[in-house]
Design a protein around this nucleic acid. Structure first.
Lengths: 227, 227
DNA sequence: CAAAGTTATTATGAATGCAAAATTCTATTC
DNA sequence: GAATAGAATTTTGCATTCATAATAACTTTG
């Protein structure tokens, strides 16, 4: 399912700006200089402004009338709210996946799970994360709910830029793995209610945010000083 | 909390087009004639095109490269998916509301509930719907999760145009009211898990869709014939 | 008369232009 | 020297223009 290459300029520009925000090349709260970006992209203002409007409706950018665009500030509350929401969506994905996933799909996720476990035992955090994410994505896809997928991707995009700086305690990690063990059991039994419950309460959605407090505070201070 | 009047033309236009889609003045799948709409609104193409891009990212409109904008077709599956999602969001709103709502807030919802009950007894469907909606909105607001509210409103907007043609069976209505009775009990006890569960399973999210099958089929046939 | 090719028309995508608002810079006053 | 008023500059919002792609109309040909 490769994406249709949009040859539309505004779509291309939107992607680029999304990436810049994600990587922090445009910092939170920072003004987005229209003219300047146009020059770097080599496009006129029209497609850039269209892109900014789209990004605003995606929640990445804020448009102040007659005062230009800013990268939307991520407050602690906003990130927390987003994670709560993503938890609910993952819960739904689990419920639906239980009902719709094929036996082969379950096998595939079990394989990913085993892979993740071995990375856990070897304390390979990066690899663990990658596979962990794959598992959650697999459930999302198996849910067969396209609107759900779209919403989840949007929410995920909004908080991507803070996710990098995550620190993980040993205790948190252990409990996350325990959650995953339970998830696999529920999935094999196709116990949708149970899998939904586990995913909604899954540690990722709760503790991860707690560890971000200072990161976001720092970010806010920096941009406050800049203004 | 009155909305800030955006003096931006594109925002105004987006609102107008949203309304037109909601009311069916622009039918599902229908081409959106740029020039024509510009004339009726008395604006140039720039703000209209900006608005269309926003509406596309809201999922109301589809933009085909070099082939203009169309009102997004609502398939049965899409509406079903959306309702499933809204159910999950309402569930979360209930969980959060239980934790955050004030005692006065609970009283207010109980009052709405009683009002709704009396409309049910008198079989006043329109009034029942209005109050019913108020209850769910109250929970959404009491959740204190702004991102949740934003997402819910977006989803709700997407399916608004089919909601009107809802037919309600006596049996469905009775069970919906029973759900609401249970909701009130859970809310008073601040039993967040329970309220969440009820809301997720609430009939509105499931049966309402079933009764829409033919409506959407008709709509699809009509627009298929037009194309 | 139907089908395919060609031209004419229209619609879309993007750049440019222009007026109004906002910001910055300068100068004047206390 | 700080504060305010005013001019100059920049930025924003929208309209207009222009090139290109898509569609419709019209031939032409089998």
């Amino acid at each position: 399912m490769s994406k249709i290459q949009h040859r539309n300029l505004y779509g291309e520009v939107a992607d680029r700006v999304r990436n810049m925000i994600e990587r922090g090349e445009l910092a939170s709260g920072e003004r987005i200089p229209e003219r300047e970006l146009c020059d770097t992209f080599g496009v006129s203002r029209t497609p850039l402004r269209e892109a900014l409007k789209v990004l605003a409706s995606e929640g990445l950018v804020e448009l102040l009338p007659n005062r230009g665009a800013r990268v939307k500030q991520l407050t602690y509350k906003m990130v927390k709210d987003t994670y709560d929401l993503m938890g609910a969506l993952e819960g739904l994905s689990g419920e639906l996946a239980c009902q719709r996933i094929s036996d082969e799909g379950i096998d595939a996720i079990c394989a990913l799970h085993d892979e993740m476990l071995s990375f856990y035992r070897e304390r390979k955090a990066m690899e663990y994360f990658r596979v962990n994410q794959q598992i959650h994505e697999s459930l999302l896809n198996a849910s067969g709910n396209d609107v759900l997928l779209e919403m989840y991707n949007n929410l995920s995009q909004r908080v991507k830029r803070v996710r990098y700086s995550k620190e993980m305690s040993e205790d948190y990690w252990r409990r996350a793995v325990e959650d995953h063990e339970e998830m696999i059991v529920a999935l094999k039994q196709r116990d949708s209610k149970r899998l939904g419950q586990i995913l909604r309460d899954h540690l990722c959605n709760k503790l991860e945010v707690a560890s971000l407090t200072d990161v976001i505070d720092v970010e806010q201070k920096r941009s406050a000083a800049a203004s």
